[in-house]
């Protein structure tokens, strides 16, 4: 895998000449979306260095600065380009930090979903029989309850079990767990469908004849061939996870206001909408929509390019 000879081009070169990159170069929407996504990602990762102030640091906050409008409206302060929220925090900084929290939860939850879902899908598809029937029935039941509903219920139960204070302290990890547990069936069904198609192919028979164990065949032989559908649904799932996190936070089952995500920023601003301070809720909202939209569009593009056999219905 690591040796490169003259006859086989290097990995980078193969990647650069692939159909994926070829079609990316010809699709300006995909380029545009990727650029915006990278901008938000960069802003979120570099939030501690980019943000004018630290929203977690209480000493930097002055309540007298609360509810200042964005810079293009009269009465704004040049120190706060996007205005301030009800506690006097700079909105630009809270949004950067909030996007960071949302993205961490989004990626974390998708990784957990993938871990559970891919394992379940591989087992169900490869082993078949009763295990398959049981696991897929479980996935069907959970899916029929809609992932958001499951997430809300699990979140509510966690909050009741741990109590509000502990829940706030570990909110990031709990949200990753909740959304991960709620949405694994999507992965399981997709992976199972492609495993079923792969299982009957000759290379799997060959591996079995050579006496490899099931685990090796599943993870070393079949899994690499099911990667493209996994890749495609991962993008959609990240968008879903970010929306789920925002919804949970909006319901008060997510990130606390002291460590806000985009969802809890929208929630905290909603109380001030009637008093005319629309920016506290609508600017983070716009960032959330743009983030989810570009991820969804990238997912659409990937699906068109890779064209995997996605599980339908």
């Amino acid at each position: 895998m690591t040796t490169t000879t003259a006859t086989t081009p290097s990995r980078w070169k193969r990647f650069r000449n692939s159909y994926l990159v070829y079609s990316f170069k010809r699709d300006w929407i995909a380029q545009f979306c990727l650029a915006i996504f990278l901008c938000i990602l960069l802003g979120a990762v570099c939030a501690p260095w980019l943000a004018p102030m630290d929203p977690y640091d209480l000493t930097q906050i002055n309540i007298l600065n609360s509810e200042l409008p964005p810079i293009w409206i009269d009465g704004a302060d040049a120190l706060f380009p996007l205005g301030t929220d009800a506690q006097g925090r700079d909105l630009l900084s809270t949004i950067l930090y909030g996007a960071r929290v949302s993205l961490i939860i989004g990626f974390g939850a998708v990784m957990l979903q993938a871990l559970i879902g891919v394992t379940v899908g591989l087992l169900a598809g490869y082993l078949g029989g009763r295990i398959d029937a049981f696991l897929m029935r479980l996935a069907d039941i959970q899916l029929s309850f809609s992932t958001l509903m499951v997430a809300i219920i699990v979140g509510a139960l966690f909050k009741a079990v741990f109590g509000g204070a502990v829940y706030s302290d570990y909110a990031v990890w709990l949200l990753v767990l909740i959304i991960g547990l709620a949405e694994w069936p999507q992965y399981a069904r997709t992976v199972r469908a492609s495993v079923l198609a792969e299982r009957s192919k000759e290379y799997v028979d060959a591996a079995r004849v050579m006496g490899y164990r099931d685990r090796r065949i599943m993870f070393r032989h079949i899994l690499p061939n099911t990667l493209s559908p996994i890749f495609v649904i991962s993008t959609v799932q990240i968008a879903n996870a970010i929306i789920s996190e925002a919804a949970l936070s909006f319901l008060g089952l997510g990130m606390p206001e002291t460590q806000p995500s985009l969802g809890s920023l929208i929630k905290s601003g909603f109380d001030y909408l009637q008093s005319g301070s629309w920016w506290i809720t609508l600017i983070p909202g716009a960032v959330l929509v743009v983030l989810v939209l570009v991820v969804n569009l990238l997912g659409d593009w990937l699906r068109d390019v890779m064209n995997p056999r996605l599980y339908k219905g």
């Binding site: 919804a247 929208i266 909202g285 929509v289 969804n296």
Partner: peptide, 18 residues
């Protein structure tokens, strides 16, 4: 419709209120 899918329902509600 793809924009519609990307807007969380509570945000649509907030925008309609505004």
């Amino acid at each position: 419709s793809i924009i519609g899918i990307s807007i969380p329902v509570f945000l649509t509600a907030i925008m309609l209120i505004q």
